[in-house]
């Protein structure tokens, strides 16, 4: 057996750690470079503001951008309140009993369900059973259910990071539990909750499978006028023009991908900014 001296071991370990880290970074850079070089040329004012033309081989992707914005916003409207309320219940009110443990297990399992299964579930529940049809509301609700486990988990972490002593100080002044949650716990946990929610939404913005059966339209040049309308969406549009439309210029595909990852990136950056801003202000 070879005996290595500690200095040699240190070098080997450092090298392995560095390689492992680079393995994470390299694909991100490659994806970005590839999409930028192939897609940046397609980007134009027309591309961003016009509907597709000539069987999606020309024109822009405006309806898909709008559709994705609607879906993200719709998901936010449902997921944020439900996520916060559920997290507050679990962190501040629920006692440790079989019901709480069951809910915990359910949340963990929900986070592990493949996204295509959410799509089928949304089709069954929202589109068919509740009769919303293929619509923005059905798609938003499907994405909501998919995002909730992440939002609840992130919110609970944010709530649990508020020191118990704050709660007891508030209670000791005669506050009820709800007054304590509303005046002390939630305001201080909100940055963490917002960060988690935005990250979950950026994930939802790029999902294809959940919207496949519930909302996404193959081609719809006009914009939706109600929440019960179908709409186009960036990830599904990208799938369509990559697989269903022959003889399309690759620039359009990469341009669409560029717009999609830019949206996701902007959301992530906002989440990081919120976090750093409040971390600086944090006093304890």
């Amino acid at each position: 057996m070879i005996r290595l001296n500690p200095k040699m071991t240190e070098k080997i370990v450092f090298f392995l750690l560095l390689v492992a880290t680079l393995v994470i970074v390299i694909p991100v850079m490659l994806i970005t470079v590839m999409i930028l070089t192939n897609g940046a040329g397609t980007l134009s004012w027309e591309f961003l503001t016009q509907p597709p033309r000539l069987g999606m081989r020309a024109g822009g992707i405006f309806p898909a951008i709008v559709g994705t914005v609607y879906l993200v916003f719709g998901t936010l409207c449902f997921a944020l309140p439900v996520g916060i309320l559920a997290a507050v219940y679990l962190s501040e009110y629920a006692r440790d009993n079989w019901l709480t443990r069951l809910i915990d297990i359910a949340i963990i399992n929900l986070a592990g369900v493949p996204s295509v299964v959410y799509g089928l579930f949304g089709l069954g529940l929202f589109v068919s059973f509740l009769n919303f049809g293929t619509s923005i509301i059905a798609g938003s609700l499907t994405l909501t259910i998919m995002s909730l486990p992440v939002i609840i988990t992130a919110s609970r972490e944010a709530l649990n990071s508020i020191p118990q002593s704050f709660r007891e100080a508030s209670l000791a002044l005669g506050a009820t539990r709800w007054q304590t949650v509303r005046r002390v716990v939630l305001p201080n946990a909100l940055p963490g909750i917002m960060t988690g929610t935005i990250l979950a939404l950026s994930r939802a913005a790029g999902e294809t499978a959940p919207i496949l059966f519930t909302v996404a339209a193959f081609y719809l040049p006009s914009l939706p006028t109600s929440i019960f309308d179908q709409c186009m969406a960036l990830p599904y549009h990208l799938y369509v023009i990559s697989t269903q439309v022959p003889n399309i210029k690759p620039g359009i595909q990469y341009g669409t991908a560029l717009v999609l990852i830019s949206m996701v990136l902007v959301m992530n950056v906002v989440a990081v900014l919120i976090r750093t801003h409040f971390r600086k202000r944090k006093l304890w």
């Binding site: 002593s165 100080a169 000791a172």
Partner: peptide, 27 residues
């Protein structure tokens, strides 16, 4: 909560809420 209005408590480590001095007292 009614009881705790009558029985105030001071803790071992001072626990200021993350608010201003004024808002702590007015809480």
């Amino acid at each position: 909560d009614d009881l705790r209005r009558v029985m105030g408590m001071i803790f071992a480590l001072p626990v200021s809420l993350p608010l201003s001095i004024y808002d702590n007292i007015a809480y």
